[in-house]
Design a protein around this nucleic acid. Structure first.
Lengths: 197, 197
DNA sequence: ACCTGAACACCGTTCAAGT
DNA sequence: ACCTGAACACCGTTCAAGT
């Protein structure tokens, strides 16, 4: 985390060694790709190997494996939230909601670790709760717009929108063919349009 | 697995020691309750402790932890399949399909290990594939009846029905409130009624 | 200040020694 | 024939020793 090494004009200056910066970044990059491919059970040893550092170095930069996972997944959630914000400007409110759900589903398909976290609602991982809230807020806006446009009859909160993302992809996975997710998504969206829950 | 100990009238007679029978049963019972509560990550040591046997004894009766899990979960799936068969006789085809889905969801809520397996579609566990097929066949009949009754417009296979079970419960879990599953189930069933997929 | 690798407690699994 | 507990390889995590 860096260390106070000097005091200039009364300001504390934090100096971090160059190799430390490089190693931290290498660990994050390696973790991102290993976790995406193998999920949460990927071993720290594999990540350390891929990053070209010793296992101990991973724990110098991140207090635990969970912390490392959180750092990586936080980036993914932020990206998704940014996409969602862009979609708010779209002309068709129902289409925007549908596209957001598809984006979240494709992220689950692309990233095994995100998929597992999205499924178990493991807010256990610290530091992820806030990211999730931001995502829920944008999702709530997308849902509100869709309801106001009259295309959606069902009551639906931001949390529910996240639930739909997970429901569609996990449902498809349970059939043994994850690529079938558009079927489940279309059922859910059709439900949103017609059900009065 | 027992051992040939005698030959009477030319028939081979397999004799199993009484303590072996008792221990095997104790392991299965212990595993059922531990797995239901703690999920697939529950340790063999905990199961052995609860059963009152040494860890090694578990592996004398089951080749691996996965085999033990399969034995326990196979029972759960069989029970669910039996419930489904009973529902085939019901007067309202859509209601029967709905009730079956609810039963599958409640099983996920009650049993953590089943929930995790239903979600990941891990047919990896050997011996479970056949049980699943039987469940899919009954589910297919329930779906067919619902379509023929005219209440359901969407195309839906037995595999899809299983997917709906998982979708509804996992969706609810992702909202942080598993008890919200009826909301997701009603969306999906409403989708089945109206979507033409 | 940071990196490394040996060490620890825990897991699933194996197996020699007991009965 | 079966049970037991010690042993092994693997995991996440810690820490003394190096630079």
């Amino acid at each position: 985390m860096g260390h106070v090494s000097a005091s200039v004009h009364g300001e504390e200056v934090v100096v971090v060694r160059a190799d430390a910066v490089r190693n931290r970044e290498a660990v994050v990059v390696a973790a991102a790709s290993v976790l995406a491919g193998s999920g949460l059970n990927a071993s720290v040893a594999e990540i350390a190997d891929r990053a070209g550092v010793a296992k101990g170095t991973v724990f110098r930069h991140f207090a635990s494996k969970d912390d490392l996972v959180a750092a990586v997944v936080a980036g993914l959630i932020d990206d998704l939230a940014a996409q969602a914000e862009a979609m708010l400007a779209g002309p068709d409110a129902l289409q925007a909601l549908h596209d957001f759900l598809a984006a979240g589903i494709e992220l689950q398909a692309r990233d095994q670790a995100f998929c597992e976290l999205a499924s178990t609602a493991e807010l256990v991982v610290p530091g992820l709760a806030e990211r999730r809230e931001r995502l829920e807020e944008v999702a709530e806006l997308l849902a509100l717009r869709a309801r106001e446009s009259g295309a959606v009859r069902a009551q639906i909160s931001g949390r529910d929108v996240i639930g739909l993302m997970t429901a569609a992809y996990q449902g498809a996975c349970a059939t043994g063919d994850p690529q079938r997710w558009p079927y489940f998504l279309s059922l859910l969206v059709s439900g949103l349009r017609h059900a009065d829950t």
